[in-house]
Write a protein that binds this DNA or RNA. Structure first.
Lengths: 350, 350
DNA sequence: GCACACTTTTACATCGATGTAAATACCTCG
DNA sequence: CGAGGTATTTACATCGATGTAAAAGTGTGC
């Protein structure tokens, strides 16, 4: 009942050296069955547990990876964090969840391991740092980007095909007879950044049907929260030619939009159809239930953790030579599937 | 540009001993201003950063605390985690978020620091472990409980006054003319556990008006998710004498309930009023907006972190003796405020 | 000029686990 | 039975920072 036992204590009790105990703990191949049994008996008897501080110091690897998301109480990132934590656990790694608050300095400091060498690697869902910033920033740590950042070839990244997803969502709205579709949270359709890519998919879908995109219907959002969705929607409704559909670039915007529509006495989906992205839980229970693009979140999480774990394990190789090359051959990109879930908010054709 | 600099390198560059560098880093009192300046210059020039593995090993304290919640994608816990992380950051501690999935073994292992001595302490939001289990379980780590566990005097805990909160919520419904109030997620009103305490407050409010509580209207929930709220509500509606109000013991249950009411063609609040607990974001934007008991979450987080930090720091002093591992001779209990936010889901009197 | 008290700095050991390389045990076969 | 090889085990150094205790430096008063 005194202090925690150490390897030394286990070794003494089992009558072997400390290194042998270590070998047993780490599943080294050359340990005789009898010896192993004796050590295991001692471990159990003393209730020994590895001291991670010692191991970390010696191995130079803490077993901790950081997950950096804009904000946890955005439903999407909470769900994702949930999944990442579970996946990391399966690989016996621990996750440190860090919130960037969409601030660039915080994202940068995360890439650097928060000014310490506490973490082995970082999974970052970038928001404030754009493509160029990411490209330029040299992290000493393995990094996996979560979400679309197409040109950041220096880093591994995992995402859905945002262009295709937005195209499908738009086609669905067009099929329902909608003609004036506003893009809530949209941005000029450049080939970079999630919002830009989704807007681009939208524009492509219109073009494919010979329709011109109306840039006045693309409304950027400062944040991707309910309140922004509500505010943008209220503004749209107050204009001369209000839209008959809203392509909201995430579910929170969509839920805020639906609330604003309700307040304005506009019926969903009869008067205005609404589609979101992310498939967060509240959208499944809202009234009306929200049509949304559902990314394969479990796979997103699994692939992100896998890529990072591999990078951490293989870090030795890249330390020396690879530096200096702008286009690293190792930067893997994984595209994960998505599904358009058609629910009540867009189900009725006009 | 090779490896990370160590204290050794800083010491060499500044022309002092390693210990002096350490003294500067740790703000020791006896360092001459000139020496300090020289060391700081060297630190800046080399880009030195403390290696936490070394510090952890030496100090026996990692600076990491664990937050254990049932599930992150329950909106309430994501919001709470958000706040706890920020608060811990202010105190320069790092938070490890762990999900118990409401499983007893996982909660127990958390109390033990996950089988390692990686974390300095634990903030636990217990769900699976009841009072007696908590009372019996001897943790080697400082623990702060988040949420109501009245008899667990061995551990510090932080919570709102659940009995009073439920009483107020019930009074509000009674004031609105409701007479058959179902308690969704309720349990027999024992003096322990959040659900039990809230049920108790409800019963007390009824009694105070000379009304008897109808035990058949108290419906326990397996989990506190949307689907459980929806299922329980659907069942209630199918019965001979359906309720005219739902006191849902958290917002998710309430949101699920509202969805079920909508599906059944029942109007909220005209036919049935709904009240929840937690004040999570989706309830603010639901249609109708959800009346709810809002705990002072920022203070909840602040106090939890404060209590734990104090316990961890207090432990340092006792290192020498290290006899009986008993933390906090007087387990502190902090009660945090709450507010009943009356919104649309209960606003119209009958 | 020197004893004494106080401030600042240092050498060294230590926290616990594990890689390295060398030592020892074990086994096979001529 | 011993050479030669493989399988196991060990002693020791090391990862990086910091507590301890002692050394070195500074200053004061007589």
């Amino acid at each position: 009942m005194g202090d925690r036992p150490r390897i030394r204590d286990v070794a003494r009790r089992a009558g072997v050296s400390e290194k042998t105990v270590s070998n047993v703990i780490n599943d080294h191949p050359h340990v005789r069955a009898r010896t192993r049994a004796a050590v295991e008996e001692a471990i159990a008897a003393l209730g020994y547990r590895v001291n991670l501080a010692g191991r970390h110091l010696r191995r130079g690897e803490s077993g901790v990876i950081a997950l950096v998301v804009p904000e946890l109480d955005l439903g999407y990132f909470a769900e994702l964090a949930d999944l990442v934590i579970r996946e990391a656990e399966r690989r016996s790694r621990t996750v440190l969840v860090h919130q960037s608050e969409a601030r660039r300095t915080r994202e940068e400091s995360a890439l650097d391991g928060f000014g310490t060498d506490f973490v082995d690697g970082v999974i970052l869902s970038p928001l404030a740092m754009d493509d160029d910033a990411l490209q330029a920033y040299r992290s000493r740590l393995p990094v996996v980007l979560l979400g679309e950042v197409p040109r950041a070839v220096r880093h591994a990244h995992v995402a859905i095909d945002n262009v295709a997803a937005a195209r499908e969502a738009t086609e669905h709205l067009l099929d329902g007879g909608r003609t004036r579709i506003a893009v809530v949270g949209g941005r000029p359709p450049r080939p970079s950044g999630t919002a830009e890519l989704r807007t681009r998919g939208h524009v492509e879908a219109l073009r494919a049907r010979g329709m011109a995109a109306d840039p006045t219907l693309v409304r950027p959002a400062r944040e991707f929260h309910w309140r922004d969705g509500a505010a943008l929607t209220a503004a749209l409704l107050a204009e001369a030619r209000p839209p008959d559909a809203l392509l909201c670039l995430n579910d929170l915007l969509a839920l805020g939009a639906m609330r604003a529509l309700h307040d304005a006495g506009v019926r969903v989906p009869e008067d205005v159809a609404v589609v979101g992205f992310d498939d967060i839980a509240p959208g499944r229970y809202s009234v009306p239930a929200l049509t949304t693009v559902a990314p394969d979140k479990p796979r997103l999480a699994r692939e992100a953790v896998r890529l990072l774990a591999e990078a951490v394990e293989g870090r030795r190789d890249t330390t020396g030579a690879a530096s200096g090359r702008e286009f690293g051959p190792s930067a893997s990109k994984v595209v994960v599937g998505h599904t358009l879930l058609i629910r009540e908010s867009s189900s009725t054709a006009r």
